[in-house]
Design a protein around this nucleic acid. Structure first.
Lengths: 231, 231
DNA sequence: CGCGGCTTTGATGTTCATCAAGTAAAGTGG
DNA sequence: CCACTTTACTTGATGAACATCAAAGCCGCG
């Protein structure tokens, strides 16, 4: 790979690594010229449902939640996205307006590329398009499967599932600080705040986890896994 | 459009209409040469979860359900697909094996195109790829939104929703024969068979619908719509 | 005919949301 | 920095929504 002439100076830019392999130097540079990097603080709203889709957004670092407001005003979280994910992949090519909102759960940096530029690249470079498609497909699959699997579980199973999600997928450690409130957990896995708390307490009493405010440590992972699968 | 030299003789082939606009004659012919058409009887399994993805599948006519078996063996239906939909769009480009099964709810004809051929076309023709991407994106969006919206509803709301889905989207008539059993409705909207029956009976008693075996007629559509939205 | 699957209704119990009330933590303005 | 307000967290009690269990009628099919 001859990256020395490329104007993007994002060292280790995953965006490039993941799909831009298929682009040549001039194509990459055309992207670099229009790309904007933007930082958000914890709690900032990055994308608001209903606004026009103008850019292709890639999560460089941080953590975000993707959610929507139901007609009745209730907030539903459909995914928590970690770096390397093309957070804006949902709806990007099917709609003109965002159907979902995105909010930073942690200090977050995103990379934005004008949608027209991406569209042109796809038109002129099929390999690039195929790469994006694979990403889209994986992303949608993941969300759909997660939803289906959560739907069948009872509350205990959902809590166990979400604990494992944080431990395995997001923090890669059995001890971590929850990036979300109990209320947000409730919104993510479709239950009430009270029950989130109740079940976490139960798990604590049963010696499965240790709780210290936002910090959670999984003590008996085998059991949590069993509850997640079975519950 | 100069379709007179094209070897595919599927009159009014939607597949062609929808994305093949972007293909030239020789490209279309390359597709026509490898395409296979296959018919299925009501109840036949078209795709089984876990088998290798070899083909790109398009629903020409009929009706299918897309579902998966949960680890515990319970069947969950995630979508009912009508013609014009690229039923195999889920997972096609992200996985090597199907994550879902597809089964004919009615006599059904599908068009199968070797996946390698499609992949090559995308590589060489970006516009074609973009068309497929839009389809994929729409399809995933629809499934995700439907799931989210069903999740919040209570049982009455879900039944109302599914009745409207059949009336508006699938049969385009307020009187139709259910293509699925009560049990399958339960699997689609995540509830028990008994409650599907109970609530349909309630709707009948309240004069909202008329039931005659598999035949259902929506009498008070306004009310059903209200229940679907509010419930 | 009789068997198995689909449908229907009723009775019972569990799970979970809702309501209420209180404590802890985290902003906010003087 | 402290009183004040708001927001997050926690626990218990109650009731509603829903699953489960049981039993019986119906229908198609070998």
């Amino acid at each position: 790979m001859s990256q020395h002439r490329i104007t993007c100076n994002c060292e280790g830019c995953h965006f490039r690594m993941v799909v831009f392999d298929s682009l040549n130097e001039s194509e990459i540079n055309s992207v670099c010229e229009v790309k904007k990097e933007q930082s958000y603080k914890r709690g900032d709203i990055i994308i608001e449902e209903g606004t026009e889709i103008r850019e292709f957004i890639y999560l460089k670092s941080g953590l975000v939640k993707i959610y929507r407001k139901s007609p009745s005003g209730k907030e539903q979280i459909l995914n928590i996205a970690t770096p390397m994910e093309f957070v804006s992949l949902l709806s990007v090519f099917s709609e003109t307006q965002y159907k979902f909102s995105i909010c930073a759960l942690d200090d977050t940096t995103v990379c934005m590329i004008d949608l027209e530029t991406v569209r042109k690249l796809i038109l002129s470079n099929g390999a690039f398009g195929l790469g994006i498609m694979e990403k889209m497909s994986k992303n949608a699959d993941k969300i759909i499967l997660q939803n289906l699997s959560l739907n069948m579980k009872q509350l205990r199973g959902r809590i166990a599932y979400i604990l494992l999600l944080f431990a395995n997928d997001i923090y890669k450690s059995d001890s971590f600080d929850l990036p979300v409130s109990r209320k947000e957990i409730a919104q993510l896995i479709d239950m009430t705040t009270e029950n989130v708390i109740r079940i976490l307490s139960e798990f604590r009493k049963d010696g499965l986890i240790r709780i210290n405010g936002k910090n959670i440590e999984i003590v008996n992972k085998k059991m949590i896994e069993q509850i997640s699968e079975h519950g």
